[in-house]
Simulated scan of single mutants.
Amino acid sequence: MKKDTKQQRANIVNKTLFYIYKNIDTNISLEELAKLNSVSKYHFHRIFKEETKQNLFDFITSIRLQKAANLLITNQYSTISEIANMCGYSSHSSFIKAFKQKFSYTPTAWRKSGHKEYSKNLIGEHRRFDKIDIKIEVSKERFCAYIRHKGYDKSISKTWQKLKALAYEYNLKEYKEIALHHDNPTITPLNECNYVAAIEVPKDFKSNISTLEIPKTLCAVFKLKGVYGDVLAFLRYVYHYWLPSSGYEATTLPSYVIYHKNHFLNEDNQFDLTFYLPVKVIY
């Protein structure tokens, strides 16, 4: 496969995934995704399946249910039907059936306490972060070049190393290292998590690397230092304990971190980061 073809296919997948996450509350069609990428429906569907090893609509369904599972935890004042609609389900009964099939709990049981047991089986016991510094502020928009990574584990370091090498090739000397968490790894099996390693670039940046925009939005902002493994425990605290009683609800926008010290690039496994969680006020 030629280098240009490989890059083109990667750009199609990256643009598609970002579009799906951004518009997960809508009825996403094969036609609109093919049009988005300026290719035929057949060509698009074949590329997506070959590059991701997943069926397109199975993938979309999985994202819908993962988003719903997270919102059922964090958005205590939204009804199950409202959350189903936020994640692209128009039928209440079909949502309940699909949710139970994936998570082995009904949405009601999941919201009550099922998510805690499910999370415990994935990443172990709960830890508290009560003394952490938290602010509510409007985050600015950011433009990023990025590489997508499948799974949440130490193999992410290879993706960061590759991105750092690309920054060197494009003569980017000073930049922020940013990671987007499309999935909540405390309720999504780590090997299924979609992680994005990114570096902030000028708005007019031109390259063959895929780019994205993090929109200006209201965020809960947390500052955290620790070692590899602490992030998972922290995320569970934020989503399962802090957010439900905070007076705010999560949106469908992905959370992200800005690394001041990146544990995926440091041999001591230590990190220093600021975590941004898009939220809306409960009236």
Rank of each mutant, 00 (worst) to 15 (best):
I80C: 01
D133A: 09
R236M: 06
L224F: 13
N262Y: 10
C144M: 11
F48P: 02
G226T: 03
Y170W: 03
L172R: 07
G226L: 08
K120F: 15
A34E: 08
R127V: 01
N75S: 02
K223Y: 06
V238H: 07
I209L: 09
H260V: 09
I12F: 07
D230Y: 10
A250S: 11
E117M: 11
L218A: 06
F129I: 01
S29P: 09
I209Y: 03
N85V: 07
I24H: 13
K6T: 14
I258C: 15
Y248N: 05
N121Y: 15
S90K: 12
L33K: 00
E174L: 04
I132A: 13
R9F: 13
F275D: 12
F57D: 15
A167F: 08
L56R: 02
I214A: 03
H181E: 05
S139K: 14
F143Q: 06
S29D: 07
T252K: 04
S255Q: 06
I134G: 13
Y21F: 10
I136K: 08
V257T: 11
D230H: 15
N262Q: 13
Y237E: 02
N75F: 08
A145G: 12
K225I: 06
S29Q: 14
R148T: 11
H182T: 02
F44C: 04
E82T: 07
R142L: 13
I12W: 00
E82N: 04
E200V: 14
Y241A: 01
N27G: 10
K102D: 00
T274C: 13
L163T: 09
R236D: 00
G247R: 04
C87Y: 01
S78P: 02
L265A: 07
Q270R: 08
I47A: 09
Y239P: 03
K164H: 11
A250F: 02
G124A: 11
T188N: 02
Y228F: 12
I47H: 01
K206P: 11
L172W: 02
A179T: 08
K3C: 09
K162W: 12
P244V: 10
L65R: 04
V201H: 03
L232D: 00
L172H: 07
K3T: 09
W242S: 08
T26F: 09
R142K: 15
R236K: 09
S245G: 00
N208L: 10
S90Q: 07
S29W: 13
V138K: 12
K216R: 14
L212N: 01
P254I: 00
Y283A: 10
I282E: 08
H126F: 12
Y105I: 02
G114E: 01
L253R: 12
I24A: 07
D153Y: 15
